[in-house]
């Protein structure tokens, strides 16, 4: 079961007792070194200013629905990548490189929050933060604070998802076994599991039925 708090209605508790870390003894050394490094104390903030750190933490918590402890220290992971210039190897012509783009979009987010709610983003109540983010996402390919909204949204969600779903606690929540070398998998096929895998406790919980009406299919990646 994942360490992360997640309501049953939001997909929590689907893999009771499942723990990828409990399988760490079966991982190769190189992989174990990299993955276990995500568990201990998170890296210090080096890139963000204190104000940026507060805004980024609030933003990332909203995007990933992390509203209580323990959390995956996503803001530290994102900060590390930016400090080390670990970009994805490209930037849009109309946005600066990722580090600068993060600074610029976080400043813009505070600016929007000040305009609407008279305080920086991080100080706003969660409901106001969520409403502001929804309004940015709804802009799609239109301009937000001088930038194409979909590209800003893509930058934020790309870094957020990469950091969150690199963490064993997040894998436990989705039933993914993590590293698989040198052991590999022996039971391939529909409804077949390895001895260490755990069956989904609510297989009928189709998010499309449970969730809000499917949003219009956007094409943010190519925007």
């Amino acid at each position: 079961m994942s360490m992360l708090p997640l309501d049953k209605n939001d997909g929590g508790g689907r893999y009771p007792g499942f723990s990828t870390l409990a399988q760490a003894h079966s991982w190769d050394q190189a992989t174990a070194g990299v993955v276990l490094g995500r568990i201990g104390p998170p890296p210090e903030i080096r890139f963000f200013t204190p104000q940026e750190e507060a805004g980024a933490a609030a933003l990332l918590d909203q995007l990933l629905g992390q509203h209580a402890e323990p959390r995956v220290p996503v803001v530290n992971f994102v900060d590390s990548r930016l400090a080390e210039k670990q970009t994805d190897g490209w930037r849009y012509e109309d946005l600066p490189e990722d580090g600068e783009a993060w600074r610029k979009t976080l400043a813009a987010l505070d600016h929007s929050a000040e305009e609407l709610y008279f305080q920086p983003f991080a100080e706003c109540p969660e409901s106001e933060q969520a409403a502001l983010l929804q309004s940015i996402q709804d802009l799609g390919n239109s301009t937000w604070q001088g930038m194409r909204a979909s590209r800003v949204w893509g930058l934020w969600t790309r870094y957020a998802a990469t950091a969150f779903y690199s963490h064993p606690w997040a894998w436990d929540e989705i039933g993914f076994g993590g590293p698989a070398y040198p052991r590999g998998y022996k039971n391939l096929g529909i409804d077949r599991r390895e001895s260490f895998e755990v069956a989904d406790a609510s297989p009928g919980e189709d998010p499309l039925e449970a969730g809000p009406a499917a949003l219009s299919q956007t094409d943010r990646k190519n925007a």
């Binding site: 629905g65 969730g211 809000p212």
Partner: peptide, 11 residues
Amino acid sequence: WGADFRRYMSD
């Protein structure tokens, strides 16, 4: 995004 995203991913 947010809770909807996590619910989807749990699937």
